[in-house]
Computed example of a mutant assay.
Amino acid sequence: MAVGSDLQAVKHIMATLFSAQNALRSLAPEFRWAGLGNLLGDYGEYVAIEAYGLAKAPAGSDGFDATTPDGQTVQIKANHAASQIGFRGEADLLLVVKVETDGDWSEIYYGSFAEVKAVARYSGRDNKHMVAITKLKALQEAQC
């Protein structure tokens, strides 16, 4: 998959952020220094949109982050270290990418949103569906 120069520059910045996070853990190990929250999610969306030729959804779109060239809605999730992902809403497709500490990324799952929702569990406490990364990988393998 060809990667543009802007994507390479953003990848480098993400690697720098992860490196800084690791340095913080060394300097003050009593703190977790975990999670990049929206930054990780934004990076996942950016990578997915650029690499998969998607169009960013209009601001305020409910349940999806992008659309495919043929108009299908796509919810995008980025994962760094968690064993599961959470999601809300509805979309045609779900794209989950794993982001490494060097900013590199790989596809965990890209396929039917409905199939993932069918194997996910609902968390009333968090008001969202949760699915294990292992289940996503199994679904992805079944598609191949």
Results as ranks from 00 to 15, higher is better:
Met1Arg: 13
Ala2Gln: 12
Ala2Met: 13
Val3Ile: 14
Val3Lys: 14
Ser5Thr: 12
Asp6Gly: 09
Asp6Ala: 12
Gln8Met: 14
Gln8Thr: 09
Gln8Phe: 08
Ala9Asp: 10
Ala9Arg: 14
Val10Ser: 04
Lys11Ile: 08
His12Arg: 11
Met14Cys: 10
Ala15Glu: 07
Ala15Leu: 07
Ala15His: 08
Thr16Cys: 13
Thr16Phe: 13
Phe18Glu: 01
Ser19Asp: 11
Asn22Ala: 15
Ala23Tyr: 11
Arg25Trp: 03
Leu27Ile: 09
Ala28Ser: 13
Ala28Asn: 15
Pro29Gln: 10
Pro29Ile: 05
Glu30Tyr: 09
Glu30His: 13
Phe31Lys: 15
Arg32Leu: 13
Arg32His: 12
Trp33Phe: 15
Ala34Lys: 13
Gly35Ile: 05
Gly35Met: 09
Gly37His: 01
Gly37Met: 06
Asn38Gly: 11
Leu39Val: 13
Leu40Asn: 02
Asp42Pro: 04
Tyr43Ala: 06
Gly44Gln: 06
Gly44Tyr: 00
Glu45Gln: 10
Glu45Ser: 01
Tyr46Ala: 01
Val47Leu: 07
Ala48Asp: 00
Glu50Pro: 00
Glu50Leu: 05
Tyr52Cys: 12
Tyr52Gly: 00
Gly53Ile: 08
Gly53Trp: 03
Leu54Trp: 00
Leu54Pro: 00
Ala55Trp: 00
Lys56Val: 07
Lys56Trp: 01
Ala57Phe: 02
Pro58His: 10
Ser61Asp: 07
Asp62Met: 13
Phe64Trp: 12
Phe64Met: 05
Asp65Gln: 06
Ala66His: 00
Thr68Met: 10
Thr68Trp: 07
Pro69His: 01
Asp70Thr: 11
Gly71Pro: 01
Gln72His: 11
Gln72Phe: 04
Gln72Arg: 15
Thr73Ser: 15
Thr73Asp: 04
Lys77Phe: 02
Lys77Thr: 05
Ala78Trp: 02
Ala81Asp: 13
Ala82Lys: 07
Ala82Glu: 12
Gln84Cys: 05
Ile85Phe: 01
Ile85Tyr: 03
Ile85Gly: 03
Phe87Trp: 03
Arg88Ser: 15
Glu90Tyr: 14
Glu90Val: 15
Ala91Gly: 06
Asp92Glu: 08
Asp92His: 06
Leu95Phe: 06
Val96His: 05
Val96Phe: 10
Lys98Met: 11
Val99Ser: 01
Val99Asn: 04
Glu100Ala: 15
Asp102Thr: 05
Gly103His: 10
Asp104Trp: 04
Trp105Lys: 00
Glu107Ser: 10
Ile108Asn: 01
Ile108Cys: 07
Tyr110Thr: 03
Gly111Arg: 04
Phe113Cys: 04
Ala114Cys: 05
Ala114Glu: 14
Glu115Gln: 14
Lys117Cys: 12
Lys117Met: 12
Arg121Trp: 11
Arg121Lys: 15
Ser123Met: 10
Ser123Ala: 13
Gly124Cys: 11
Arg125Gln: 12
Arg125Ser: 15
Asp126Arg: 14
Asp126Pro: 00
Asp126Lys: 14
Asn127Gln: 15
Lys128Pro: 03
Lys128Thr: 10
Lys128Cys: 15
His129Arg: 11
Met130Ser: 09
Ala132Pro: 03
Ile133Asp: 02
Lys135Trp: 03
Lys135Phe: 03
Leu136Gly: 01
Leu136Phe: 07
Leu136Ile: 03
Leu136Asp: 00
Lys137Pro: 01
Lys137Thr: 06
Ala138Cys: 05
Ala138Phe: 04
Leu139Cys: 06
Gln140Tyr: 07
Gln140Gly: 07
Gln140Cys: 03
Gln140Thr: 04
Gln143Phe: 08
Cys144Asn: 14
